[in-house]
Design a protein around this nucleic acid. Structure first.
Lengths: 189, 189, 189, 189
DNA sequence: CATGAATGAGTATTCATTCAT
DNA sequence: AATGAATGAATACTCATTCAT
């Protein structure tokens, strides 16, 4: 009925948004029709924009990662000390993820989108490498492990943010605090 | 082929095991047939044991939680100081989860199995409450948040263990260490 | 093949027709696929028009009854004497039923379609009531019983018409004749 | 549990009875398991007695027809005038059918049981032939048609008896009365 | 460009039947 | 002789996708 009053690219964006919501909420079992309906279009229209399910998912990841990439670039991680870098990248990542909600689905995406774009992860890993090198991070756990734990924390926190069990701000602060200094009360010197 | 040589309940167990593996590996999109095949039975047999998909998932959660429950009970969390309690429950949980692999799917299970059995979570939360009360845990983050972060860490670590990106032991130690004392190098006094 | 060249509702109608034929011919055991094939569509298309088997059956009954209703209304049963009314309603009913073939299946339809729409049966029963009241019908058998016998006759005759053991005209005439005056030769006065 | 205390043939009979009931009540869609359950045995046991569905149905018809055959033979139809013969065969048939409930399913039975055993129908048809020949039955309707109408009446009445909408006695009397003399009030001479 | 209708290839589930015990 | 467990072949229904309009 409403004949495309809306600029064309907006439709694409609306579909991606809808896909993010629906997939986050109903899991990978959500059907194309559900996504289409959530976007306010027919399944046929959805398929005009994204030829098949995989294409849609890939675009979803690409969009999310692109967004995250921009935020990370803007964070100038290499210009600040480790602690601050971690704080920044935590904020950036949670913001990006809870907007696109896609990272939590990382492990179920299509084969070639599954792995995070290395160009993206590189700056993150660098922060850890640097921290390890300059002695700011503990050395009894391998850097790689620290990184994995950090990602775990982020992935776990996102659905909680999405489902409103935690606020975005709260989550960012908490993750940073816990990751850096742990849960134990520190002896006041 | 070989008809019913296997003792009664073993089939049920084999199916649950298979379901855990398959769901963990291929995500919620995995079909009943895949699970059946992985269990070495026909889809029809699978349905004799679990009338429908939901019943299977529910049983899966129940089994996983029962197992975890036993491990936690055996850990006597209330008899040891907070630090040790956390170490123990980390080990117990990772062991249970990576055996049943179900907890990572928590948020996609059938509506009423979705939420963890409160009787199960209670002892965990108690550890945190106690830690907060006796001053072992930091107070600048709400206990509830600490708990959520802890669960995030566990949930994030499990798939990494399952996919052999981390060993079970390594994961347990690392989670405990990071959760308790954080990633920063501590000033040697 | 030919995609959607056919006007909207014709497909629905074609499916109902096919369902009537197939069910009449192969009995309630006929599958959705058989019906779909007979209608010249895929099972998927059938399900687009009738979400499940019960919906199809219900529509089938509704259609048949609607058609019968129209014919009965057109027959103006209340304007003619009992004998003629019975003759008319016999013709109307046999025509309707052997077109939609559904009434013979009455007792196997979905629970709530099973019972004939009372608004439909009312005019029929009225004819009997009236006949009993004005003395045209015998009083040694309860009106209700006469009605049931009449329906029995109709239901029994329809499959015979459908299977070409009797012609439509022949059946109408014969039912009316037998029902009114019985099988015995009448003494010529 | 209960290990065959019951004489072997009784089981067969119980299954046939159960089949009759279940098929009559739920239609041809009733499954083997339903029948088995109604007979108080497992599906496996049912299959020991009747190798497959068709065999069961065939036996069901055979049993019903054998029973009817006996009753008809006992009725000595050829020894009494047409009117009485019809009264007797009506009673016999309704009794037999409402016991075995199978005749109403006649048209959906397996191919070769579908047609009534000609040896069985012969005596019935003979009654009509004789009636036509000796002038007791009206000649304006073909004998064949009269017979079909008679069968229609019986088939229609049986489910009504089975579902307790009519009593067995009432049904017999009514069918005979209507079939012989029709529904019209007869002019009292 | 968007849609409603259609479809082929699935998916979960059921059924009649078989076998080892 | 009876059963519980198992299964292959269906069956009803769904989904991602395509096309004519």
């Amino acid at each position: 009925m409403t004949r495309s009053t809306v600029p064309r690219d907006h439709v694409r964006a609306r579909i991606l948004d809808a896909a993010a919501s629906v997939l986050a909420e109903h899991g990978e079992r959500a059907g194309m029709t559900d996504i289409a309906r959530a976007a306010g279009v027919t399944a046929a229209t959805l398929h005009r924009h994204f030829p098949d399910r995989e294409a849609l998912l890939r675009s979803l990841y690409e969009t999310a990662f692109a967004d995250l990439g921009e935020r990370l670039a803007a964070a100038r991680l290499d210009t600040v000390p480790t602690e601050e870098a971690i704080a920044r990248m935590t904020r950036a990542t949670i913001a990006a993820i809870s907007r696109y909600r896609a990272l939590g689905l990382l492990d179920q995406g299509p084969e070639d989108a599954r792995r995070v774009d290395p160009r993206l992860v590189a700056p993150l890993r660098e922060v850890f490498e640097r921290g390890a090198a300059d002695g700011s991070l503990r050395r009894d756990l391998p850097v790689h492990t620290l990184a994995e734990l950090y990602f775990s924390l982020l992935e776990g926190v996102v659905p909680r943010v999405v489902r409103h069990r935690m606020g975005v701000e709260e989550a960012g602060t908490a993750v940073t605090a816990l990751f850096l200094t742990g849960a134990l009360a520190r002896p006041t010197p």
